[in-house]
Design a protein around this nucleic acid. Sequence first.
RNA 1: GUUCCCAUCGUCUAGAGGCCUAGGAUGCCACCCUUUCACGGUGGAGACACGGGUUCGACUCCCGUUGGGAACGCCA
Length: 486
Amino acid sequence: MTAKVRTRFAPSPTGFLHVGGARTALYSWLFAKKMQGDFVLRIEDTDQERSTEESLQKVLSDLKWLGYDWQEGPEVNGPNQPYFQSQRQAIYQEHAERLLKAGKAYYCFCSDERLESLRETAKKEGRSPQYDGHCRKVSKEEAKERLAAGEKATVRFQIPEEKDHYVFQDLIRKEVKFPKEMVGDFILLRSDGMPVYNFCCAVDDALMNITHVLRAEEHLSNTLRQIMILEALDYPLPQFGHLSIILGADKQKLSKRHGATSCHEYAERGFLPEALSNFLALLGWSHPEGKEIMPLEELVETFSLDRVHGSPAVFDEEKLKWMNSQYLRALSNEDLWQRIQPFLTAAGLDFSDAPEDWKNKTLDVFKSSMETLVDAVALYQNMSDAHFQVDEEACAEVLSWDTTKAAMEVWLQGLKDLSGDYLSEEDFLSLQDKVKSDLGVKGKHLFMPLRVAVIGKPQGAEMKLLVPLLAKSSLQKRVEIVLEKI
RNA sequence: GUUCCCAUCGUCUAGAGGCCUAGGAUGCCACCCUUUCACGGUGGAGACACGGGUUCGACUCCCGUUGGGAACGCCA
């Protein structure tokens, strides 16, 4: 029997969850679910300068919004706690001690200035800028004395001499081979005693029994360091899989200057988590039959690492929008209303007292023209008298027609003549007919003026569906406002 | 600069030597539906980076070139 699959996602709490991070989390989560294993969440907060409690909450809430639940980690805890690296100091200290004792690590007293000039020289000579091993020759006794005297020192890992190359089988890229010289003696513990990413990561992956590490390609060279650490510590290696980078439209690594890059921003812009996940899943993975719209549960069923490929993908927001609209239309009206409500409220629109039937009918009418939840705002503004305004630029042509004014006057009179608070579809159609026969107008000269009289815009949803959803009194008010503009 | 990764329509991708006249999706265009817009339907334009091999046969395998990306921190 093979060991239970355990994947992990290890964000550092320094801001909102990035979409690249979200994809890494998604793949790790999908693979764990698919293999009926565990998905572990570990917080890499060893950089005290940048890590904040606020960011942690953001990352956690983004993950929850996306629906990737973790079996071990913050809030749920588990047998390998704590899951915050900042609370695992003693563990790293102890491991550093072990390496120090075994002569696989050493204290380094080099100054920042020396390190800096080292990098510059290397760069000038066209070499990889890495540490020269200067402090390897400081004896343990000397180090002890200098430390006791109050000198600050980092602990560096001593690159093993035995192998020329390190080779590992990447789950996505097959064989990856690194020359040993690719890295210099790197730092394990900072001079203030805080451990550094590569060290914590390697130790924790081993201690938490992680079997599969899925992460972004930018970590490829870190993998070499982590393999070295793991081997020096005599710990088993997890399997590594390096996902390609997500690119912006200019083919550069997706970053702030490309616009929205955090999941949170997409949430705010009215994207559905299921659509974002689905879209992200398709950035580097494909369904065997080419299926594209798949909710999370179906993704779990069909996901496999052998269909993940290693070439970088451009994040195409147009396709995300399309996908979002597909999910939007598949939602029940009740569900959809729940989701648009916060956006309406934020825009100062309150339809909470509206009858269910009205909500249903408006949604039926508007659903097909929404790409994101935010689009609902403009649509429902049309339904609010307080937000009614004439788009003069768009209406200019319609308002300039000779027959427009007369058409609106007949429409207004017709409204007045009708009894009841609302028009039925039939009421509307016969009134429309009346305008047509009274004035002899037809086609756009008939429809456009009426539409402008109703929503202040020459284009929009089908009138016979829209009009019965507006109170007669408000229809009257609106046409009166428009008439003043002529 | 060094090392590593990557290379099919604008974009996301299918393709594991003959099934490829290179398929799907998105975006774009046209037409249909619709007395508007949108939705929906139908159709169209649109790609194997280049050069060498290997092979009877290469989008698929190998090498090189070019191009793109990433990493080279007391960040993660």
